[in-house]
Nucleic acid binder design. Structure first.
Lengths: 162, 162
DNA sequence: TTCCTATATAGTTATTATTATTAAATAAGA
DNA sequence: TCTTATTTAATAATAATAACTATATAGGAA
């Protein structure tokens, strides 16, 4: 399923503004990789993005796709479904609970909140399949990672001074 | 972080009842693999489960861990965080929206619901890190997969008759 | 515009995660 | 205890992701 053209254009403009502002090069490859994700409503995997972009840039390499996707994720222009990085994570708690997920390192913590249990599911969702559970996913950056980011930033500042 | 012993015991009992009822063998390995996931609150990855179990069963193979985990997931005794199977899935929609995820095939569909936007995040969650977004994750089985399951079941019934 | 240079890319190789295969071992019913 | 279908360990195969390096390019300076 495809997104509406005006919304796609908005997303492309946001990408360009953001990359320029950050002093990161605005390459053809980056634009096309972003476009491939941004135009779709089905949350493609990396392989799908790769073959989609390859139709327009036949020489693109898979490595570039991965590198670019992580870059865009780092800039907050894309996200992954669930925790970042491809690794299965298990959960044995089958009763109602919710998650905080760090979008940098994948750290996940449970929390309980009775207000969040028993949310009414819209019928449009029930039309997609049988519903088994509902949970809140709060995403953000854990304190450990935000500390790390600050350090990274400090180091870069030092480098610039040299 | 560890779970409370009585809750762990409850989970172990549920596992045993469920496997017996399904006519699946209740092996030492299966018990220990489940216990390793069930006792933890941090949602371990497969490697972590493997090395944890290996302390008690030094000869366990990684393959057994994978096979067992998927079996337990299939029986609804465990789940994965996010979509099943280890593959990064992308999302370019950075504004508020929610997901239905099929726990069999990973099919993911967006939906909007303004009631779900702006849920009040408890302070205990804010203590974990900076919150960037909040979304609902509805999990279940999509119609395509539930059809497939029925077919599988029909085939098994036929085999039994022979 | 043309040139320069830091940064990004393609192509390839390496690493890590997951799945398949098969001979030997074992749980659970007779 | 015996039997047999299932399960396992060990290994090999495949798939997903990341690293490496010589070449190419975006974007600022002249």
């Amino acid at each position: 399923m495809r997104i509406e053209p005006p919304e796609l254009k908005r997303r492309m403009n946001r990408l360009k503004a953001r990359l320029r502002r950050s002093g990161v090069k605005l390459t053809h490859q980056r634009l096309e990789i972003f476009r491939e994700v941004a135009k779709s409503l089905d949350h493609p995997d990396v392989e799908t993005v790769f073959s989609g972009v390859r139709r327009r840039i036949p020489t693109i390499s898979l490595d570039t796709v991965y590198r670019t996707l992580w870059l865009l994720i780092d800039f907050g222009l894309l996200t992954t479904l669930g925790p970042p990085r491809g690794r299965v994570r298990l959960d044995a708690n089958m009763s109602s609970h919710h998650h905080f997920i760090c979008r940098k390192c994948g750290m996940t913590r449970d929390f309980l909140n009775h207000k969040f249990d028993r949310l009414k599911i819209p019928n449009t969702v029930k039309a997609l399949g049988s519903v088994e559970s509902t949970q809140i996913e709060v995403r953000g950056i854990c304190f450990r990672c935000s500390k790390k980011n600050k350090q990274k930033y400090r180091v870069q500042r030092k480098k610039e001074k040299k």
